[in-house]
Design a protein around this nucleic acid. Sequence first.
DNA 1: ATCCTGACCCAAG
DNA 2: GCTTGGGCCAGGA
Length: 126
Amino acid sequence: MSRRLAPEGVKRNITKRGYARDEERDDAFRQIIRSIPRGRVSTYARVAEAAGYPLFHRAVARLLRKDTLTSLPWQRIVGSGGEIRLKGEFAEEQRLRLRMEGVQFHGERVNMGIYQHELRRWEVLD
DNA sequence: ATCCTGACCCAAG
DNA sequence: GCTTGGGCCAGGA
């Protein structure tokens, strides 16, 4: 069976909790993140929006911080404008990983004009 | 409940 | 170009 993530009718854009299971939201994020191919990148905000949860960019960052070991290509998520948002050695690790995938930088930033991946707005589960 | 902080973002200046 | 302030959501103290 399949279902749309963030189905119609789910309330969004409101500041109260509890309108969607956090786990459901995180699954939506994981789907989107895994859809980014090698050598391409996307941003926190775009992942959130594509998953059906605009304004939840910070939640994407939280997930990546906590969920690094679940085979997510975390290095492919960067800040708007291609900025690396990790700090210190972690930022270096991300740059290294991206460069190994062939992503080139313009100064400190990823060249988004070339490497930004156009995300599909929804994904099918199962 | 309040306060602080963060792998965020964007409009202004 | 960069810096700032305000907005955003959620987790932890």
